[in-house]
Design a protein around this nucleic acid. Structure first.
Length: 301
DNA sequence: AAGAACTCCTGTTGGC
DNA sequence: TGCCAACAGGAGTTCT
């Protein structure tokens, strides 16, 4: 379940295989992912050179020499595997020899290989997505900021505009709970279930508390908000440094694993002891906004 | 308008 | 062993 750190890890994994290379062939093996693929998807990409590969929240943004941007979202189970072309150095652990091995091991069933990019440097980048919650779109560079994917998207949590005053303003008068508020991409863009659970635990904030508890009081962000913002940043930064979290649906572009799941304090730990020293409570689980929330009812208030 | 519920999808898991 | 329901969840849509 790729959230911001996993998407950033994927970006770093496929960047060396794609940037400065040209799309030779784009294989589109089905008409749609979650949504229909763009009209003339393959032909619009073929012959274009990749200028850059960026990221906005959980979206990958590939800018082409033709002035179009390929927007890619991994959804729940989207995955890229890379077979590096000859002469490309192994970067970020992208090892071409592993791709077949992992496919053979059934980790990545080839029947869900929906889009395959063949690059001029010999690299082959394959998009595999069993649940097809992912999607791809093509828009012109000029239309990018106003397209429906981004027009309502909130602040980038690792950017400079994400600070306690900004979060406090967004939270003003919000009656929804903290968990749902932080999952809403219109506020902070890039957080998902795992990192919201982990950040709220570290900040010792109950996921059931009203979001408005973060709001300004006496013109200043609440102490809770001041505490939460740097924690959100550090959780994401640590996860990126660890290469993301590997759960059922996510692995690196080379099939290898991220390591941040070993740092989970609450996610997936229902019934296990809280890791806070001197706390003897067990991690609880309930459902908020249709997702499992894991928390310590004793430490998080 | 905000917030909650529902929807899409398929592999995995647990109960019988 | 086999079958089936429940579950996982990002984000768009629909409802209240």
């Amino acid at each position: 379940m790729p959230e911001l750190p996993e998407v950033e890890t994927v970006r770093r994994g496929i960047e060396p295989a794609m940037v400065d290379a040209t799309f030779v062939t784009v294989e589109q093996r089905r008409p749609d992912l979650r949504f229909p693929l763009p009209v003339d998807f393959a032909t619009r990409l073929q012959g274009q050179r990749v200028i850059s590969l960026g990221r906005r929240a959980k979206y990958l943004l590939l800018t082409t020499s033709g002035g179009e941007v390929l927007i890619m979202h991994l959804g729940m189970s989207g995955r890229f595997t890379v077979a590096l072309g000859q002469g490309l150095t192994e970067t970020n652990g992208a090892r071409s020899d592993l791709v077949g091995e992992f496919a053979h091991a059934g980790v990545c069933n080839p029947k869900h290989d929906h889009v395959v990019f063949h690059m001029s440097n010999g690299s082959i980048i394959t998009y595999n997505d069993p649940r097809r919650f992912g999607y791809m779109d093509l828009v012109t560079e000029n239309a990018l900021a106003d397209c429906h994917h981004f027009s309502k998207l909130g602040v980038e949590p690792l950017g400079n505009s994400f600070h306690s005053t900004a979060l406090a303003s967004m939270a003003a008068n919000r009656t929804t709970n903290l968990k749902a508020f932080l999952l809403d991409q219109r506020h902070v863009a890039g957080l998902g279930n795992i990192y919201v659970c982990e950040a709220l635990y570290r900040a010792r904030l109950s996921p059931r508390r009203q979001a408005s508890c973060l709001a300004l009081s006496n013109g200043k962000p609440s102490a809770r908000c001041e505490r939460l913002v740097p924690i959100i940043k550090s959780v994401l930064e640590e996860a990126i440094a660890a290469g993301g979290s590997t759960l059922k649906d996510y692995a690196h572009t080379d099939g290898s694993l991220g390591y941040f799941q070993h740092s989970f304090a609450v996610y997936g730990r229902e019934g296990e002891p809280c890791l806070t020293p001197a706390c003897s409570a067990k991690i609880e689980r309930n459902v908020q906004a249709g997702r499992s929330t894991f928390y310590c009812g004793n430490c998080q208030r």
